[in-house]
């Protein structure tokens, strides 16, 4: 506690790095970034003990804009890299970020496994239903019939329902927010970080350049019903499958053992607190 009195209270702007965002004006990801600054400040997270990890895509540029440790990895690999960081040092706060292409297409295979292992990570997906960095192709969440340069006759592939997918895979925390409501989104991110386990946060984050859904989504977004029970996975799934609206809020939460509760580097080599080990004692067993 004494330490807190020495360290001045960090403000959201204190988490802002010197690297300026490369996003287009009006990009939903600005709202997500602002929410993240807000959440980090609200939790007073230590930038030297926080790692923001991403894959590849517009939204995966985010770690550069945050004054914490960061790692922008390869396309689709954010979750296994983040898992490795968390296992290596469970004291770190690890926040994974990325887009719908990164998380649900090229990295889709990792999502279910991260979810089932339940590492204590927060995964913020900025879903804009389009590929932005490669300049406007269809994405795994794009609507059926979506016309882009890669689908000039309309996409023939039905979209993924990421919320239902995460819930059906057994996620221990699932929420949805909207970049147009950074205040609520910051609250959801705070809850996600505080959740002891894998927190999946789908953020509806429109792309003004290639698929401007801002007004469309704003009109359809509404809070989850007041009587929604976030401990009921079936209720959460029913909300995830709604097509009359885009509900936002905490869909589901449960506390179950995390990955690091059984699989972690308990003796970090740089802290030199591991057991004494002479390999010759191991080698002797081969006589």
């Amino acid at each position: 506690m004494a330490k807190d009195s020495i360290q001045p209270r960090r403000l959201p702007k204190d988490y802002k790095s010197e690297v300026k965002p490369t996003w287009c004006p009006g990009c939903g990801d600005f709202g997500v970034l602002a929410s993240l600054y807000q959440a980090l400040a609200q939790l007073q997270l230590d930038p030297t003990k926080t790692v923001v990890v991403s894959g590849i895509g517009c939204s995966s540029r985010l770690p550069f804009f945050v004054e914490t440790y960061g790692f922008q990895t390869a396309h689709g690999r954010v979750l296994p890299v983040a898992t490795g960081i968390k296992i290596a040092n469970p004291e770190l706060t690890v926040i994974a970020v990325g887009g719908d292409g990164d998380g649900f297409s090229i990295g889709g295979g990792h999502l279910v496994h991260a979810v089932r292992r339940n590492p204590d990570l927060t995964y913020v997906v900025m879903d804009n239903e389009v590929y932005g960095l490669t300049k406007g192709q269809t994405s795994p969440t794009s609507p059926l019939g979506f016309k882009t340069k890669s689908t000039p006759f309309g996409s023939a592939d039905a979209p993924i329902n990421p919320m239902a997918w995460a819930l059906a895979s057994g996620v221990s925390f699932a929420a949805r927010g909207f970049s147009g409501d950074p205040k609520q989104l910051a609250e959801l991110i705070v809850e996600g970080i505080q959740h002891p386990g894998f927190a999946f946060i789908q953020t509806m984050s429109p792309c003004p350049t290639f698929y401007n859904t801002f007004d469309l989504w704003r009109a359809r977004i509404e809070d989850l019903p007041p009587d929604h029970d976030p401990t009921d996975r079936m209720q959460a799934l029913a909300q995830a499958f709604r097509d009359d609206a885009i509900p936002v809020g905490v869909f589901y939460r449960e506390v179950r053992p995390t990955l690091e509760s059984h699989t972690r580097v308990s003796a970090h080599p740089l802290k030199k607190n591991g057991p004494e080990f002479d390999v010759r004692s191991l080698l002797e067993t081969y006589r």
Binding site: V51, V53, F71, T73, A74, R77, P80, V81, A82, T83, G84, I85, K86, I87, A88, N89, L92, H110, H113, V265, H268, P269, L270
Partner: peptide
């Protein structure tokens, strides 16, 4: 995922 996790653990100093 195996090598990705290894890269992550190494970045974290292990």
């Amino acid at each position: 995922a195996a090598i990705s996790t290894v890269v992550g653990a190494s970045i974290a100093g292990v």
